[in-house]
Design a protein around this nucleic acid. Structure first.
Lengths: 350, 350
DNA sequence: ATGAAAGCGCTAACAA
DNA sequence: TTGTTAGCGCTTTCAT
């Protein structure tokens, strides 16, 4: 009643289990006639090689993994529900990384195991992934550093879009500061704006911090006042928080800013809505920018000026690094920075 | 030098391997103090439980799988390259199914293993997936039926978006015929069009055939001539073929049609471009429709009227069926049909 | 080209 | 609560 094994197939086809094994690993090493007998028996019995047993015996799985955070902007989901036409527009960061990794993994003959989770410890999906792959990529802030510490001693791990955290890991980041600096420069020089405010994220978001750094650099370069801190910080960088931030900024006394730069697109989109509700015209009365390049940014009115991250590339590169390291265990840790590009749309005045 | 095992951890913490195992499976069943000792030892050694060994011993992996075809419309990719702004707009069918399955799998505590491939046989990625999961979903036309035949005798398989092929499989389809009939009815009744042509796909694409069926039903219902065959068939249903089809249809003698209905969005988008090149205005001179609801359809000019498939839902439902069947092996094969909805945009004249 | 035998690292009864 | 003991189904030398 249980699943057939090499033994069953071997018996039925009158060969040894070793031969059955060979048929599935190195078909050419078995005489054609024998091979046919074996495959025939396998077909009759409904034999499917156990990946687990293979992996256990050969100490390799042929699978690469990806752990990403359980981010699901509730507002974004709401969009998808309410306006079913916007459904597919909400393509998250992680979806694109998956795309990139899958393509690259396929090229190298690997399958891809994916799992989202925020919590660590034994029991976690992270642990499950780690135990079933030859190597994997992790989005920053996904897996507790202490777990990673242990895991990365046993198999290749590449950290994506965040600080390396552990110094023997490979990691890949995007040029956050460069992008925000360039974007800010554009607002200042090309649109002649001077009163800019930056809305950041939590201090422990390296991406958001790097973007703020870029903002400051541009201010400094232009001879504008350089703030020590973002005008406002949000914790989750979601749409609702962006909306709230925009309103707070409007209601705050003093001169109204000419431009609001958000640390990510989600917040900027939320802000766009809040500003519309308050009758503030974008970009005439206020320029608004985001960061990331999510598809939603192109669909909103006005379309969002932003900085595009090469997210798919991130996934592809991750696989390349993993594959490299798998074949050369001794290689020094690598650190890559992928370039970004400013996307000028309507919300900045272009 | 090799990876530490339960034995190493057991020895170091002065317990038996069974206890180490328990710490990772059912932490509460171990005295807190003992548990700490074990985890401490594990940390020091860099112990990561082997998923393979676990799976082998427990006969379960905690992983669900998805096999999808190696579809990558070269034209779509070209779009992504040429107009980097359209990059993320090109979100394929499979990406959305992955999204849906991942979400649902996560809810049930499963990770998701994904792999694309067109070829079967031993050695194939399909075989790899089959051997490493508790059950998996297959997009129609992805895995050779004979492989599926064997595999599905050993673990749950659900067929997506296509005929069941093997009668003991669960399967999920979308209401292709209903959608195309409704769309066609819209063109006829609401826009008063009468000379409609349908561009289909290969005869062995069940989706395309079902859509053609819907088209015919609407023609019949409206008292229009009912064609036996699509005006044209393409093999891969890609953009280039759609463009070619549109031109062929234009150059063909006789009265020019008032509307071209394509079996999918990719072809329709290609047609839109070809028509623009030829100076045919859409929708004034010619109505054009697609099927699928890909994001690109909203971005093209004019925006594409189409039928949206609930693709994410497809993925979610697939997981539900797999999970069900995993807990109730005896259940009768299920066949679900998910409803679709007509999306009226500009290309039909709306 | 094929076979024999020894693990691979874990879980799952069953004992204690 | 913890330990003992069999396997789980394959790959891998080493022979033949």
């Amino acid at each position: 009643m249980s699943a057939p094994t090499v033994y069953d197939v071997a018996e039925r086809s009158g060969v040894s289990i070793a031969t059955v094994s060979r048929v599935y690993r190195t078909p050419e090493s078995v005489r054609a006639q024998t091979r046919e007998r074996v495959l025939e028996a396998a077909r009759e019995l409904g034999y499917v090689p156990s990946g687990n047993a293979r992996g256990l015996a050969s100490r390799t799985t042929g699978v690469l993994g990806l752990c990403f955070p359980d981010y699901a902007d509730p507002d974004a989901e709401a969009d998808a529900e309410a306006d079913s036409d916007a459904d597919d527009a909400v393509m998250l960061y992680s979806d694109q990384i998956i795309r990139g990794m899958e393509r690259a993994a396929r090229r190298h003959g690997y399958a891809l195991l994916i799992a989202a989770s925020l919590e660590g410890g034994p029991e976690s999906l992270v642990a499950k992934v780690a135990g079933r792959v030859d190597g994997f990529a992790v989005l920053a802030q996904t897996v507790p550093t202490e777990d990673l510490e242990v895991i990365s001693r046993r198999l290749p791990v590449v950290m994506l879009a965040g600080p390396r955290e552990i110094d023997h890991l490979d990691h890949i980041v995007v040029a956050n500061a460069d992008g925000e600096r360039e974007l800010t420069r554009h607002l200042i020089e090309d649109h002649g704006l001077r009163r800019l405010v930056f809305v950041g994220g939590d201090t422990d978001s390296p991406d958001a911090e790097a973007r703020f750094r870029g903002f400051r650099e541009a201010c400094r370069d232009a001879g504008l006042p350089v703030p020590d801190e973002p005008a406002l910080r949000t914790t989750m960088m979601k749409q609702a928080e962006g909306a709230l931030a925009a309103e707070t900024l409007l209601d705050r006394g003093g001169e109204r800013p000419e431009a609001m730069l958000f640390a990510n697109d989600q917040m900027a989109v939320g802000a766009l809505r809040a500003l519309a509700r308050r009758g503030v015209r974008v970009p005439q009365d206020m320029a608004v920018t985001g960061f990331d390049g999510i598809p939603l940014g192109r669909i909103v009115q006005p379309s969002l000026t932003t900085v595009r991250q090469p997210i798919r590339r991130l996934g592809e590169q991750a696989v390349e690094l993993l594959v490299q390291r798998l074949s050369d265990t001794g290689r020094e840790p690598v650190s890559l920075t992928l370039p970004v590009s400013v996307i000028r749309r309507t919300s900045c005045g272009c």
